[in-house]
């Protein structure tokens, strides 16, 4: 296996230009909603709204201004699949359409997927949805085809301010940590890395530098694997079945015969 590869997205240098969104659509030849005749969301400059089967990059716009405008901020962030080391989508896929590649990235093979939707619900970040054209679940592939050819993913290549950086995860984490301390030294004490260590789903191969709480950016503060519920839910289901079976035995067993006469 090659070295794990990923993205480091430094939101403090993002200018919200959406080049990543278009470069991604260009390379992957993804359509636009309504053939491009979209409607305005009214939520700042975000009209893409969310990551889904045809938007594999999504720039978020968070306006933080008090009434007197002092210290106002406009947080911009290009969101993408996190390529989790322990990936929820991969766990729940029943067809093996979702694979972990030699780059430690998570890729949905469109020719295998049958559009059951399990991964859509299983992703802790809401990254995946059905592409209405292929009718399969799709998301960022971290440009698997380009990676195999030794090329950089389309979005990070296009990013004008290097807010999106691509590289070996190990190296990116070092870079991210350095940038955090640079920002901390410069007085931005709120800067931290989201998903750069093993604590979060074994590490996100695509991690972020944020300057506010994750939920401000629409990211879960505590993302979890869907499989966390597998055993308890199964146990409780079994318990339920057992209790019903007991009631059944109690209700239907032979010695109760004769009790069951209906009144006319």
């Amino acid at each position: 296996m090659a070295e794990p590869m990923g993205f480091f997205t430094d939101t403090t240098v993002c200018i919200g230009c959406k080049a990543c969104e278009v470069a991604c659509k260009q390379w992957n030849q993804l359509p636009s909603p309504e053939g491009g005749a979209n409607t305005m969301s009214g939520d700042s400059y975000d009209n893409t709204r969310k990551l889904d089967g045809i938007n594999w990059r999504h720039v978020k716009f968070v306006e933080q201004f008090s009434e007197d405008r002092v210290g106002g901020r406009w947080l911009l962030m290009s969101d993408v699949c996190k390529h989790c080391v322990r990936a929820g989508c991969l766990e729940v896929c029943p067809t093996n359409a979702i694979i972990r590649t030699e780059f430690d990235t998570v890729v949905i093979q469109s020719d295998v997927c049958n559009g059951c939707g399990a991964c859509v619900a299983g992703c802790p970040f809401g990254v995946i949805d059905i592409n209405p054209v292929s009718k399969t679940a799709q998301k960022c592939t971290l440009c698997y085809d380009r990676l195999q050819a030794g090329m950089e993913p389309a979005c990070s290549k296009a990013c004008p301010t290097d807010s999106i950086q691509f590289g070996p995860v190990r190296e990116l984490r070092e870079r991210g940590a350095k940038r955090v301390s640079q920002l901390n030294d410069g007085g931005e004490s709120r800067a931290y890395l989201y998903g750069a260590d093993e604590k979060m789903l074994g590490g996100l191969n695509s991690f972020f530098l944020l300057v506010d709480k994750p939920e401000v950016y629409g990211l879960p503060p505590d993302p979890k694997l869907p499989s966390r519920n597998l055993v308890p839910a199964s146990m409780f289901s079994a318990l339920g079945a057992l209790l019903v079976a007991l009631i059944g035995v109690f209700s239907f067993r032979e010695r109760r015969s004769g009790e069951g006469e209906d009144r006319p």
């Binding site: 296996m1 990936a87 972990r100 698997y144 085809d145």
Partner: peptide, 12 residues
């Protein structure tokens, strides 16, 4: 990860 790692050859 419960599913095995795979390398699926991609066509550039």
């Amino acid at each position: 990860n419960l599913a095995p790692s795979l390398a699926a050859a991609q066509e550039l």
